[in-house]
Design a protein around this nucleic acid. Structure first.
Length: 958
DNA sequence: TCACTGCATGGCT
DNA sequence: AAGCCATGCAGTG
């Protein structure tokens, strides 16, 4: 709740103090952040005195219809404090709470389940646009008050952004709801007696139906557990009748939810979820202003547009409230588990404490996506949740683990582990049927969708990509969309970027684009997809696809750019990219920084300044090795003119003009003309560019693909972490088995390499892939590899022995890892200070088997950036890979021991590491880390790991 | 031997 | 500390 900072300023414009003992979070801004208030203002806000204190003279004050208390209704702060009454007027939260009784008994549309078809009549349910509902209401933002029922009582959850429509931990709900919902698992035995079907449960879960939220209809539970609408719809003063009409027209609704057309309420839900993203400065009602869009739109498509415009901002959307599905067959359809579920409405999850979806499950769907889903219909899309695919999800097993709360909130209730077949429409309008089921798990449940493989493949999804679940109304269909984690070089991304979709969500529901972006993942011929499980077989339904071809394994063959885009095996990638990855705990955002291609990394790396390299000769080529980590520099272009004079060109970050620089200039990442002090005539962005467009074209064409891409990515802010890992891995991999024909390779892998350079770096294919070397290979590369491994091992052993000696000295207390790290640091420093001259130690037998061993190490090819962070002190561009160095060292040691090398090392003291730890020799870090981390599994065809340092490769003189 | 299924485990939130 | 959930793995066909 509070935080300390010296540079804060109270968000309250009437206060704006900069010093506060305690900073408090206020209301949520449209940016998703919270207004930061000084202690005083924050307290006022939390005590619902903010408006009283600061807006007393502002318009919008009204009196509670019940208690006559004066309530402000005219600002973002006040939206928490009142509800609108159907009959007009407002009610303060206290009163509203008193009159509030939870809704209940939501039924699922049978259309979701096989074999019950979607009743036509369902389609007759009118869907009122929010504008219709609220358009005449003079008070803006009326649809969001209901959340105040909970918000105000809980002073805003820290867990979730406090949007007015969101439901904080429903303390009051718990009280209000009769028939508290025990946990699912604990209720297994008494499901059938449970009087409160899913609707109420969901409500109790805090996944308050948008319906309830937006309309704030009040209900009372009748003796039979059903709920009746108790008071007027609060969303508008003249809309409830429409709703009722709709409901009345749908007899199926009457049994359980009299007078409530859930469908009708869903569309507001969508808009609610979008509304939050309204630009901050467009209204005096920042979040929920009169919503020009809202009040002016009468069609659902318009609503979608509205949503989209807001969605573009990529605000994390809060969990949409529990979606209430009208059950058109209620009371008439007695077939299938659906009815059973309805009758036996089992409690869904615990009502308290965990009643909201984790933010990572919040749907983030853009208008484009919504539009794609809705197509030309008047469907109303309600984003439900999303999930980043884990390796397991995207794997061949075909089981998509559903977040429990999501499953319980948005999917039909299931009482048996076998669950239900669930009809889901994909982004292209094709329908799939998954088995929605659960496994008992630790007195809980684990929900899964089974049989998703074909669908996931059809969407060309991988681990790390995100699937979104939405509901399309009035049909009540579940729609499964997707969002690619990355789509490098794809038009999708570019398009997404152009449309401001920073998260590259355009992968969703863009069949045409998908079709037009073959580089991402293209299908190859293969056997037609066949479901693995008869039980959970996916049945693309009739209209449904002839989905492309999958190979038998269910893996989408990758080729061309596709493989480049996703160089890692799905599983591995998933392991590293999954939101919950335990192997690589690195935020996507962080990992983005790693996203460089091999070439890009080459282009970016600069030898550390003021460091003299150690020259290593491999296959007749000299490489510079530096004791310090390389630095990340701005990618530049080297050019040799007709006179043979070399020059370096860089593009200003500000004006994008290209400037000529000395060949040896090292530029910071963000280099601008003003940094070009050495050349007064081009040290200003206003100066003309020295190079013509044509020249520039020539300059760029051969060698700047990476630069261009970098720029694109930079603009987009999107990079593919996997590619970065791959790149880093590739830095360490030299496939020498293949004839390293310089003529067939681009030979300017590094700006410091001359065209035609045949050094081991330049001849390395960017992919790092190449034929394997034989174990007995004695080429220089292999020898070097072996040598390096040998030194790795030696160093490790030396460390170990030193540690042992140290611990023997102080065998009083075991050393903490930090201590050990310090010791290692010391050692490394010593080593780097003096003993790095010994370079050549021959070790035999390190080969691909070693790599395999490494890859099967506990790290499983993933980068755990949390490992020994204290070791990563040097500001290295790839410092994060340091921990992996340790891993590789450990693995090396292990392997060598297994291979009997441990006893052959001898002469340890004389062979001091060429492999330096992070920060000591940036060089080696780049090798060990990523190699071990990301590519071992992915690039098993690399059999030779040449620990050529990154700086060596970047600074090799060729 | 392989694919699939269901459950168990344990890291992590 | 509870429990979610990613993943492993044994059992089965």
């Amino acid at each position: 709740m509070s935080s300390s900072s010296s540079s804060k300023i109270c968000f309250n414009p009437d206060c704006k103090v900069t010093k506060s003992e305690c900073w408090r979070k206020g209301w949520r801004l449209r940016t998703g952040e919270f207004a930061e208030l000084c202690d005083l203002c924050g307290s006022a806000y939390e005590d619902v005195r903010y408006c009283e204190n600061f807006h007393s003279n502002a318009p919008g004050w009204r009196n509670c219809e019940s208690c006559a208390k004066r309530v402000h209704c005219g600002c973002i702060v006040s939206v928490h404090t009142f509800v609108l009454l159907d009959a007009g007027g407002i009610e303060c939260m206290a009163c509203a709470r008193k009159s509030f009784v939870m809704a209940s008994n939501q039924k699922w549309p049978s259309s979701l389940f096989l074999p019950v078809p979607l009743p036509e009549r369902l389609k007759d349910i009118s869907v009122k646009s929010w504008s219709q509902i609220t358009g005449s209401n003079p008070v803006p933002g009326q649809w969001r008050q209901s959340s105040n029922l909970w918000n105000s009582s809980t002073a805003h959850s820290e867990l979730y952004p406090r949007m007015p429509y969101e439901i904080d931990k429903p303390i009051s709900i718990d009280r209000l709801i009769s028939g508290e919902r025990p946990s699912a698992s604990s209720q297994e035995g008494k499901r059938s007696e449970d009087p409160a079907p899913s609707g109420s449960l969901k409500f109790a879960n805090g996944n308050i139906g948008i319906d309830a939220i937006t309309t704030l209809s009040t209900f009372h539970r009748e003796g039979n557990g059903d709920v009746k609408q108790n008071s007027a719809n609060l969303t508008g003063e003249n809309d409830s009748s429409d709703i009722r009409k709709s409901a009345a027209a749908e007899p199926g609704l009457n049994n359980s939810v009299p007078g409530i057309n859930f469908e009708t309420h869903l569309s507001p839900g969508l808009h609610i979820s979008r509304k939050q993203s309204t630009p901050k400065d467009d209204s005096s009602y920042p979040l929920f202003g009169p919503a020009t869009s809202f009040t002016s739109l009468n069609e659902t498509k318009d609503k979608l547009r509205v949503s989209g415009a807001l969605a573009k901002q990529q605000m994390p959307l809060p969990p949409l409230a529990k979606q209430f599905f009208a059950n058109p067959n209620n009371g008439t359809d007695s077939s299938g588990e659906f009815q059973t579920q309805i009758r036996n409405g089992r409690p869904r999850g615990e009502a308290r404490g965990r009643n909201q979806l984790l933010p990572r499950y919040w749907p983030r769907i853009t208008d484009q996506e919504l539009q794609q889903i809705s197509g030309d219909s008047n469907s109303v899309i309600t984003p439900l949740f999303e999930k980043m695919l884990s390796a397991s999800d995207a794997g061949r097993i075909g089981r998509l683990v559903l977040p429990k709360k999501c499953a319980e909130a948005y999917f039909p209730t299931i009482s048996q582990p076998e669950g239900l077949p669930l009809r889901v429409q994909d982004a292209r309008g094709k329908e799939w049927v998954f088995q929605f089921r659960f496994w008992p798990n630790n007195n809980s449940r684990m929900y899964v969708l089974e049989g998703v493989t074909p669908c996931i493949q059809s969407m060309q999804l991988q681990a790390g990509d995100t699937v979104t679940f939405s509901r399309i109304d009035p049909e009540g269909k579940l729609v499964m969309g997707f969002r690619k984690a990355s789509s490098i070089s794809s038009e999708q991304d570019i398009h997404a970027h152009k449309t401001g979709n920073d998260l590259s969500t355009s992968g969703e529901f863009k069949p045409s684009e998908a079709a037009s972006t073959p580089p991402i993942r293209s299908y190859k011929g293969g056997t037609e997809s066949t479901s693995h499980s008869s039980k959970n077989q996916v049945h693309p339904t009739d209209q449904i696809h002839t989905w492309s071809k999958f190979d038998k394994t269910g893996c989408i063959p990758k080729e061309g750019a596709g493989s480049k885009t996703s160089p890692l095996p799905t599983k591995r990638k998933g392991s590293t990219l999954g939101s919950k990855s335990k192997r690589l705990r690195i935020d996507n955002e962080d990992s983005l920084e790693l996203k460089l291609t091999w070439e890009e990394a080459q282009a970016l790396l600069r030898p550390p300044p003021n460091h003299v390299p150690t020259i290593v000769v491999i296959e007749g080529h000299e490489f510079e090795e530096y004791e310090e980590a390389p630095v990340l520099g701005k990618p530049t272009i080297f050019m040799t003119d007709h006179a043979g004079e070399r020059s370096q060109w860089a593009q200003c970050e500000d004006c994008f003009k290209w400037r000529k620089l000395p060949v040896d200039a090292l530029l910071p990442l963000r280099w601008t003309c003003s940094d070009n002090s050495g050349d007064p005539k081009s040290s200003s962005c206003s100066s003309a560019q020295e190079i013509t467009a044509e020249q520039l074209q020539n300059l760029l064409s051969p060698n700047t693909a990476s630069s261009k891409r970098i720029k694109i990515k930079k603009e987009k802010g999107i990079v593919d972490p996997s590619e970065g890992l791959d790149t880093l891995a590739n830095l360490a991999i030299l496939g020498e088995g293949e004839p390293l024909s310089p003529s067939t390779q681009t030979t300017t892998k590094h700006p410091r390499h001359r065209p035609g350079c045949t050094c081991i770096v330049c001849i390395q294919p960017p992919s790092g892939k190449g034929p394997k070397h034989k174990q007995t290979c004695t080429c220089n590369v292999c020898l070097t590899v072996k040598r390096r491994f040998r030194t790795l091992m030696l160093r490790r052993e030396k460390r170990q022995s030193e540690k042992e000696a140290e611990s023997a000295r102080k065998n009083q207390q075991p050393q903490s890892p930090e201590k050990l790290g310090q010791e290692e640091e010391k050692l490394e420093n010593n080593e780097s200070n003096g003993i790095l001259s010994e370079k050549m130690v021959s070790v035999e037998g390190v080969d691909e088997e070693f790599i395999r061993k490494k890859s099967s190490s506990p790290f499983k090819g993933n980068i755990d950036l949390n490992i020994q962070p204290e070791r990563e002190e040097e500001p290295s561009p790839v410092a994060d890979s340091g921990s992996m160095l340790m891993k590789i060292q450990e693995a090396t040691e292990q392997y060598l021991k297994q291979q009997g090398f441990a006893n052959q090392t001898g002469n340890r003291e004389s062979v001091i590491n060429q492999v330096e730890p992070v920060g000591s020799t940036g060089v080696e870090d780049h090798n060990g880390g990523p190699h071990d981390g990301s590519c071992m599994d992915a690039d098993m065809d690399h059999n030779v790991t040449v620990p050529l340092s990154m700086s060596a490769s970047t600074s090799a003189t060729g």
